[in-house]
Design a protein around this nucleic acid. Structure first.
Length: 413
DNA sequence: TCTGGGGTCCTAGGACCC
DNA sequence: TCTGGGGTCCTAGGACCC
């Protein structure tokens, strides 16, 4: 009895909310006339290109289709499926309104991605009249459905790991709560690769040591685990496979980086064409950066070679920038260095912007009298004006001729 | 079936400063 | 003349997640 009370006293109440096939639901909302009666929907790239499945309707999943699968494969498995592009605007809108609803229900909401969030309801017992966590979860589910139209699933438990794992038992449109004290048994019934944070590399590493089941993993002493993985990772995994997770549900901070990348319909080896493609990515990333209200100090250019090797080059500036001109000037140099290092056809090019500072905070680093600024206030005003025009008339309205993607890049949109 | 695009976090080595 | 650590920033790469 005292044991139970002790558990109750420091027990957290965590919910994990996950939108069921978010991109499919949003695609239907964006085009209900065509899709609302459709059972087989695939969201992602076009099947004739190099696209993959971003999200598959539950109907398609019965045919073995899953996200990240090549779209061409998915269409072969489920030929009757309707293939649609990613409904970006609807996803952003629904993601925003989902957050709004959740904030009404929990003191701390942490958005984990566009379609999922963690809620910490610890300390709300009285407010919720001591109703079971599962009951609260069902009421949140109904509120989300009413205010956004979205079907969501909720998992609950005493920590983030358990709550998130529980969600997969709730799908679709259900609720699954793991009671306090049940964490170890619950996680014990899963596979190693189900653990959040265990990916293909770690799974392979464990497999090489003969560890293929959760039961076997738990039987490994921590020092042995440490000799395999190092102290830190061993401690982490030792706790994780027992359902122990102290990580807090932290309120959202701003983003840390903004990027844009594209895979070509066929590999590119011509530097001029690569530069043109790079410029288009710079325009996308810079526009997103300004829309989110940031300046960036670090510019990274990434190439994926035809043999699938990723290479990147980055430069951190003294001064934070946000215009295409300033970013492209650096990015072009970085691309040159990458090409010098290895001159091989590329299948992807991208640009990343990091070391971000909010627009409100003074963007200038060291204002040198000698060096001219990377971009002037006039440059920035011009960029913002063009953002407004693009918003009004479409993103291609203002794009100069040399910014149009090369013909070989037909896969985009 | 050749394998997207948006992110976050971690590591390891080197530069540089105290 | 030789020998230190520690802290922070930067860079490149990789694992992982949705």
């Amino acid at each position: 009895m005292t044991g139970e009370r002790a558990v109750a006293a420091n027990t957290r109440r965590i919910l994990h909310v996950d939108v069921d096939a978010m991109f499919v639901q949003c695609a239907v909302m964006a085009d209900p006339e065509r899709l609302s009666a459709e059972r087989y929907i695939l969201v992602g790239g076009r099947p004739e290109g190099r696209g993959v499945v971003t999200s598959a309707s539950y109907g398609c999943r019965e045919f073995g289709v899953h996200s990240a699968m090549a779209m061409a494969t998915a269409v072969r498995l489920c030929p009757r499926a309707v293939v649609v592009g990613v409904p970006g605007a609807m996803v952003r809108e629904k993601s925003r309104s989902l957050t709004e609803v959740l904030r009404d229900w929990a003191p701390v909401v942490s958005k984990a991605s566009v379609d999922e969030a963690y809620l910490d309801l610890t300390g709300t017992e009285a407010m919720y009249r001591r109703e079971p966590l599962a009951e609260t979860a069902r009421r949140i589910q109904a509120a989300v459905k009413e205010r956004t139209g979205l079907d969501v699933s909720l998992g609950g438990g005493t920590n983030r790991l358990v709550a998130k794992l529980a969600t997969s038992f709730a799908k679709p449109a259900g609720v699954h709560v793991v009671e306090p004290g049940g964490e170890a048994d619950f996680v014990g019934g899963l596979e190693i690769e189900d653990l959040i944070g265990v990916g293909p590399a770690l799974e392979l590493e464990l497999r090489r040591r003969g560890v293929t089941t959760m039961r076997r993993l738990r039987s490994v002493e921590q020092p042995t685990l440490a000799s395999w993985l190092g102290e830190e990772r061993a401690a982490w995994l030792w706790r994780r496979c027992r359902g122990i997770d102290d990580s807090p549900v932290a309120a959202d901070e701003g983003v840390k980086s903004v990027s844009s990348e594209t895979t070509f319909a066929s590999d590119l080896n011509d530097t001029a064409q690569l530069e043109e493609a790079l410029l288009a990515q710079v325009v996308d990333a810079a526009t997103a950066l300004r829309r989110k209200g940031y300046y960036a100090r670090t510019v990274t250019v990434k190439l994926r070679d035809s043999d699938f090797r990723d290479r990147s080059r980055s430069r951190t500036l003294d001064e934070a920038v946000q215009t295409e001109q300033a970013i492209y000037r650096v990015a072009r140099k970085l691309l040159g260095e990458l090409r010098e290092q290895r001159r091989t056809p590329a299948r992807l090019i991208g640009v990343g912007l990091s070391s971000l500072a909010p627009t409100g905070q003074a963007a200038q680093g060291v204002l040198s009298e000698l060096a001219p600024p990377a971009e002037t206030e006039r440059d920035r005003a011009l960029a913002r004006a063009s953002d407004r025009l693009k918003e009004k008339f479409g993103r291609d309205a203002l794009r100069p001729a040399r910014l149009v993607p090369p013909a070989t890049d037909g896969d985009r949109r």
